[in-house]
């Protein structure tokens, strides 16, 4: 193993440009991946918070069958929770926020209708639930903050999808970089490899230094990416917490450690896979 490791380091030294190019691309990819994953984590947390807050309010007509409508609303699969709030309860709530509401009600009567208040299981289903409830006989109007919820969900989902696409492309690019670097390294050692084959070296023996090369580059890129990403994220989220405490940023170690560990493992895995493919292909071409 000492021999293979030495050969791997020699191959990397003899092929510095390709090795550095691979290392940098891979580090950037892992940084990007880490960034997107952390962003997704925070987006998910924000969406969860939204899900907890978003409510569909269905205003009922005066002659509506309140209990029957409540049962119908509860039967909608996307509805997590539904409750009936009478016009009197609404007035009481409104009076808490706006004390003059009760005075006004005494003059013109209670203006608030009985209301069904629904919570959805997934925030993305809000519009669908609102549409279904609006279609029920006896429902006069529905309100769910359409503009706010729809735009937020669409933006967050688009950001998440774009991030995944970008990371996918970068991972593919990194894989090709590794393939290329290992191939160049093997080509540089072609005489030695040719001698090895004639002397009866196994494929595993010939491939080992280059597989180690991929592994080392992957591990170095992972270490570099984590060394940049972790402090940068912690400092950024600290700022966000100070400036916009409304955003539920993730900073707990128990959530961050597995995610960052996963990014590091992926870096090592990409390095390993790239070099395994490259060495296999090179030797197949020689056969």
């Amino acid at each position: 193993m000492k021999y293979h490791l030495r050969q791997a380091l020699l191959a990397m030294r003899g092929n510095v440009t390709a090795t550095l190019a691979t290392l940098m691309t891979m580090t950037l990819t892992l940084l990007m991946l880490g960034f997107v994953l952390l962003l997704t984590l925070n987006v998910n947390r924000t969406i969860e918070q939204l899900e907890g807050q978003v409510e569909v309010a269905a205003f009922l007509a005066g002659d509506a069958q309140d209990e029957a409508l409540l049962a119908q609303a509860r039967a909608i699969p996307q509805v997590r929770d539904a409750r009936l709030v009478t016009s009197e309860q609404v007035l009481t709530e409104m009076t808490q926020d706006t004390p003059f509401a009760r005075d006004a009600a005494q003059l013109v009567g209670n203006p608030y209708p009985d209301t069904l208040r629904l919570r959805v299981a997934r925030v993305e289903d809000t519009r669908a639930v609102a549409t279904q409830v609006a279609a029920l006989p006896g429902v006069e109007d529905v309100e769910y903050g359409a503009g706010y919820v729809d735009t937020t969900v669409r933006t967050l989902s688009a950001v998440r999808l774009a991030g995944y696409l970008l990371v996918g492309l970068l991972l593919l690019g990194t894989l090709f970089n590794i393939l290329n670097a290992v191939r160049v390294a093997m080509y540089a050692r072609r005489d030695e490899i040719s001698v090895m084959r004639l002397l009866g070296a196994t494929r595993g023996f010939i491939r080992m230094p280059h597989v180690l090369e991929g592994l080392i580059v992957g591990a170095l890129a992972a270490a570099l990416a984590l060394a940049i990403l972790t402090p940068a994220y912690l400092s950024l989220t600290e700022r966000v917490q100070q400036l916009a405490p409304v955003f539920p940023v993730v900073r707990d170690t128990s959530t961050l450690a597995p995610l960052l560990g996963g990014v590091a493992c992926l870096g090592i895995l990409i390095g390993l896979l790239g070099s395994v493919f490259a060495t296999r292909r090179y030797l197949q071409e020689l056969e």
């Binding site: 084959r197 004639l198 002397l199 009866g200 070296a201 196994t202 494929r203």
Partner: peptide
């Protein structure tokens, strides 16, 4: 590989 180990070249 084993075959080639039985041959010097």
């Amino acid at each position: 590989s084993i075959l080639r180990r039985r041959m010097g070249t």
